[in-house]
Design a protein around this nucleic acid. Structure first.
Lengths: 143, 143
DNA sequence: AATATTCACTTGCATTTTGAAAGTTGTTTG
DNA sequence: CAAACAACTTTCAAAATGCAAGTGAATATT
């Protein structure tokens, strides 16, 4: 697979999500309630189908997301963040906070960031518990 | 230059530092007291000279770093984080904390991460004040 | 003063990764 | 059964990357 460039944990992390697309998929899973191939495809940034497929594969191989059968259709798969993926939340929150300081941000997003800034821990726990619930529901339905 | 893929602040952020190298340069400036072209070149990961040159240029264009004359040698340049660059610190800290949970980490790095985890704010302020001092020293010497 | 070395790039070129469009396979819907 | 949808895969052009070599200015050495 991808060989490590160094033992530096930052470098190892970037080997997993250091590109223009992976964290956008994570974002969709975390905040946008997206969970299928097509959901991700429809995102504003316009990811190409091959890139999406390869990123989903890599993220799964790295244990950040998990694929399972979709309950509604045998054609679909359901993608979910694993706990390793959910743990990326604090990183994303800090990126949003940084963005808020240096970019002009759409009003609706701005609101959410304000909330996150006001009480970081509370915000994190809200999202985290939503995601954990989803993950557990999926686990349970697999039996 | 690079046109935005969307108005999403995460996407805009990744347009700036969403690659395998930029954050490693930021790391070197933040934690390794590196500040010249050659310092960055010598890092473990082995960045190519053309990539380093192009990343330094992009980071400068995006206001994340600043270039100035080196006091010791007219041949050298001195690269420093701007306040916009220094503000990336919380993001890097969260990446390190995530890494600590999911990777095997060299003992010396591990120690520093422990310290950051124990009192995130204190750790952040320490680094931040070191970097701000450096930046101000540089500003002063330019007069 | 001549030569060598350092520094920050730049150029050229081969390799790798990327991305858009079209094609494939299986599933479901009408 | 035909059409539409889901998740890919293939193809191929373009962009990014990586290595080697070269450039020109500034220091250091002889």
């Amino acid at each position: 697979m991808n060989k490590k460039r160094s033992e530096c944990p930052l470098s190892c992390s970037l080997d997993i999500f250091g590109d223009k697309w992976s964290l956008l998929i994570i974002r969709d899973l975390m905040f946008e309630n997206k969970c299928t191939y097509n959901d991700f495809l429809k995102s504003q940034e316009g990811i190409a189908t091959n890139i999406l497929a390869s990123r989903l594969k890599e993220l799964e191989e790295n244990g950040v997301i998990e694929k399972s059968a979709h309950p509604d259709s045998k054609a679909k798969n359901l993608y979910r963040l694993t706990s390793k993926g959910i743990d990326l939340l604090p990183i994303l929150i800090e990126v949003y906070i940084w963005s808020d300081k240096y970019f002009t941000i759409p009003a609706d997003v701005k609101e959410v960031i304000q909330e996150a800034k006001k009480d970081k821990e509370k915000f994190e726990n809200q999202i985290r518990s939503k995601l954990t619930t989803l993950l557990e529901m999926q686990k349970a339905s697999q039996i």
